[in-house]
Design a binder for these strands. Structure first.
Lengths: 250, 250
DNA sequence: GGCCCCTTACGTAAATGTACGGAGGCGGCC
DNA sequence: GGCCGCCTCCGTACATTTACGTAAGGGGCC
């Protein structure tokens, strides 16, 4: 998996001078969309802000479900933004126990490191397309442009904020409080028309919340029986009582 | 406590033009040392690096044991560096449950925020003296000097790295593994001549590790009975078998 | 000497692990 | 194209484990 991913990324670079958009050869697409930096991109897009400032080249790339994007302690060559799909970032213990630090959804930037290696691994949860830029070119731009330097700091600070909140959850919240927090977070980040389609399975949720998949399932069932949420399939959830959920979130 | 702390900080600012060193009026010191930026300060000192680059003014300040330095969600006006003593950064749930995110020991910088408020509260664990600079002046310096901007990013990235490791601990490690990790971290950060003098009580350790103080005590007792560590008083610990401890740390 | 802080024993609670049954989605086959 | 069957994921009951809560005794530091 490791070597395969590297090879694919090198292909991206080789093709960059010819076309700014490259797709995973294993997942052919009928109509690859150009990924060159767009001057008209909205300023709220962190990638567009940076590439716009620094004139960097961004490429596209696709990963299949459960495909590794990079491994823990692997050299950090690229910074990524989710275009479509979903990604999990995680750390492993030697016996396989896993802690997912964050889920990355469309629009999110991930894989930005200060040092030269990735501190967490990343995998596509479902089929996923990302935009990517070389870390070195970002670093270079930050060395001359304070606006880019500030943006990198901003993004790392955002990750830190999430991690601080998550430490409180992992260290001190009950199982039900963790699930309530999770539902409100996902509702905020990916609800469309009051409904959310979770890309991740119960095990992923458990590894994110420091619980087992059974405990997550029990908590969701309890919330269902209390009428706090409704299901249309295990991963399609409608929140019916957000206020109640907020009161359960410690 | 809140208003008192604010008042004291304002005193620091008022006195800054007269003397760059101010001590807490409640904890008089016999020989306050000057805290003006020293051009000869070693480059490994993050504060010296920044103040050296930007010519910022740093002041000194002291807090008594258990005194609040700043509260959660309080405006972020200063960035701090521990000169002597120890500090805990933490978040609280509404019912009083506490998660300590980090301990700050001599040399450590804390209280650096990207946004305008502190996301964690900070308290002195024991009598503590800090060096402080205004956040605004750092921000200003970062706006013109990429080296300062990079340094701010570096420090936030260091905090993020610690938080990521700590999420793995809180979410997935057993009580014994957490205590082993803690002992190795403290050994690395504050051991002198093979011995460490912990500034914090068992409850602080528990709130850092997501455990109760009793569980921490039980784990330490077990390690003691196994000969992995020795005590000279509850807070003076000698590690007698670091290899064994590392093998317990998952 | 007094007061915290720490240790430790015992009972409890919360979450885990184990196991199994069922539903839903996907692919193959007719 | 639709039906069937398999396979993965999910829900749930029960037993177990781990860590917590309570309480009381002891020790070190001021």
């Amino acid at each position: 998996m490791y070597h395969l991913a590297i090879r694919r990324k090198e292909m991206v670079m080789l093709n960059q001078s010819i076309a700014n958009s490259v797709v995973n050869p294993n997942t052919p697409r009928t109509a690859p969309s150009p990924a060159a930096p767009s001057p008209a991109a909205p300023a709220v897009n962190p990638f567009a802000e940076i590439t716009g400032h620094a004139g960097l080249i961004a490429s596209e790339f696709s990963y299949k479900k459960d495909e590794e994007i990079y491994g823990e302690d692997e050299p950090s060559e690229y910074v990524y933004q989710v275009i479509s799909g979903a990604v999990r970032s995680y750390k492993l213990l030697s016996d396989g126990r896993r802690q997912i630090g964050a889920f990355h959804l469309p629009g999110d930037v991930f894989g930005l490191e200060f040092g030269s290696v990735h501190r967490l691994a990343a995998e596509a949860i479902i089929d996923t397309t990302v935009r990517l830029v070389k870390r070195r070119s970002l670093e270079q731009a930050a060395g001359t442009d304070v606006a880019v330097a500030r943006k990198l700091w901003t993004m790392t600070a955002g990750d830190l904020r999430h991690a601080e909140d998550h430490m409180l959850l992992l260290g001190r919240k009950t199982a039900m409080e963790r699930v309530a927090t999770f539902l409100l977070e996902m509702d905020r980040r990916l609800a469309v028309a009051g409904m959310m389609a979770l890309p991740m399975c119960r095990r992923d949720i458990g590894d994110y919340l420091g619980l087992t998949l059974e405990t997550v399932s029990r908590a969701l069932s309890q919330l269902h029986s209390q009428g706090v949420l409704g299901f249309s399939g295990a991963r399609q959830i409608v929140l019916r009582n957000r206020q109640r959920l907020r009161s359960m979130d410690a």
